[in-house]
Simulated assay, not measured.
Amino acid sequence: MAPPLLVFDFDGVLVDGMAEYWWSARGAALALRPERQLSPIAPPGFSRLRPLIHKGWEMVLAALELSRPELDLEAYLGDYPGHIHAALERWQLQPHQLQERLEQLRREAIRQDPQAWLALHRPYPGVPERLAALAAEGSDWLVLTTKGGAFARQLLKAYGLQPLAVYGHEQGSKPEVLLRLAAEQPQPLWFVEDRRPTLEAVRQTPGLDTVRCFLVSWGYLGPGDAEQLPAGIQLLQPRQFAQPLADWP
């Protein structure tokens, strides 16, 4: 049997970038609305919203929302999609405006002081070593992220990691990219992600029923995300991740 092609999400699986998320989200939010008051220190509400955030522009919107003293965070958490729609109306902004401002800020940060920007991230313990060992096991791996591909490549290069490819948000949604990979690659696909709704969307996509899905326990999980997982999604613990692929759940 051919070895699998491992497809890794980036943020929350390979790299913990929570400090950078708030730094960049806050900076982009203040560039769009300089009159708002936002602490340099990430508020607890941002960490609670992070498991629900799917794309970069949502981080900027979350930062703007957290500048509102009257924000009902529990209601926000209870109906995230509805509140995202309402927030876009409230701030009179479009996703592309938020995304462009976020990526502009990141590009400028990398140009001015790349080491300071890189220092806002940290790879999860043992992850770079495990990825480097995959080559010895005869398994290729690539990255599939909703981050801009250029930013993911910059970080991977800093850690000395060379995936087969990096697919950023520019290449389409994760199910769309996985469908293309499934059509192009003879190898079985294993998809490693920290966002349960993304894995559920993959499982519900026709043509992806043979993709093995793993939810990592060390990512940005929300309350209950690791419980009662549907068929086809396995929880992956750090000790299992470190083991040979044949021993993964």
Rank of each mutant, 00 (worst) to 15 (best):
L199A: 02
Q154E: 13
A152I: 00
A150N: 02
F214N: 06
E200K: 05
L181Y: 02
Q187P: 10
W218N: 03
A158Y: 09
G172Q: 02
E170R: 00
W218I: 02
F191Q: 09
P186D: 04
A182W: 05
V216I: 07
F151I: 00
E176P: 09
L155R: 01
R203A: 15
R180K: 14
A150S: 14
R196S: 06
K174V: 07
L164H: 14
T146P: 00
G172R: 13
V216L: 05
E170F: 01
P206E: 09
P186L: 02
L208V: 04
K174P: 00
A150L: 14
P163T: 05
V177I: 15
E170H: 05
R153W: 12
E193P: 01
F191M: 13
R196Q: 09
A183N: 04
V166K: 04
L161D: 00
D209I: 09
L161H: 09
Q162W: 12
T205V: 10
T205A: 06
R180W: 04
A182C: 02
P197E: 03
A182E: 10
G219D: 03
P186G: 14
F214D: 11
R180V: 03
F151S: 12
R195H: 15
A150E: 14
T198K: 01
G168V: 08
F151N: 11
T205N: 03
L179I: 05
E200N: 10
P188H: 09
A201G: 07
V202A: 01
L208T: 07
W190F: 13
G207K: 05
C213A: 14
P175C: 08
R195S: 08
E200D: 00
R203E: 06
L181P: 03
E193C: 07
V177C: 12
G207D: 12
Q187R: 15
W190M: 03
R203S: 11
L179F: 02
P175V: 01
A158I: 03
L181D: 04
Q171S: 13
S217V: 10
Q185K: 14
Q171R: 13
P206Q: 12
S173I: 01
P188C: 11
K147I: 00
L179Q: 14
Q154Y: 07
P206F: 01
R180A: 11
F191G: 03
L179N: 06
Q204S: 15
T198R: 04
L155A: 11
C213M: 00
A182M: 10
G148N: 15
L215S: 05
L221W: 03
V216H: 07
G168T: 06
G219L: 08
G172H: 05
T146C: 11
Q154L: 15
K174A: 01
A158N: 11
P206V: 10
Q154P: 04
L189G: 06
V166T: 15
Q154M: 13
